[in-house]
Amino acid sequence: MTAHPRSLAQPPVTVEVLPPAARFSLRLRAEARPVAETALALPLPDRIGRRSVGATRQAICLGPDEWWIDAPAAEADAIRSALDGLVPHALVEITDREITFQIDGPGALDLLAIGIARDLSRLEVGRGARTVFDGVQAVLVREAEHRFTLSVWRSFAPHVGELLEQGAREIALGL
């Protein structure tokens, strides 16, 4: 079994809550995508799990007609009305629905494996998915080899956060 070196200065994995930015759920049909991409100045990936990263905005495709748009809070108003009158769509702000954890360190995959049944080694860097963490729906994005974000609905965050903390302590013990 692989043991993680025990070091207080550098724990094998850390968990923190990221400050809220602006987050929207965008729904539209494939034929409306080009217009929306222009209006949002952001490509909308056409494969589930893919993400596009613009200058300040990101879009991740979570379903065949569903994207999450992440942006700085200052752009929220602009995004909210960006598609008005252009194409049939639903654009709903969900900034406050979500709490996002960042899980960082060489033990990140082991830590996520306490709650996620997917094989996360197959998740490429820069991609993500909606999945389940210990029975709680979550959106997972692999930001780097050992860095992930995990977003859950606000009221589930204490449960998920405590499990992540407990798991991080367990992984630090190296048992």
């Binding site: 759920s25 729904r27 539209l28 049909r29 007609d65 049939p88 769509h89 639903a90 709903v92 702000e93 969900i94 900034t95 406050d96 629905r97 979500e98 609905w153 606000r154 009221s155």
Partner: peptide, 12 residues
Amino acid sequence: LNVWLTSTTEQW
């Protein structure tokens, strides 16, 4: 139908 559903229970 051109309509989409989004849960906002915890947004508000």
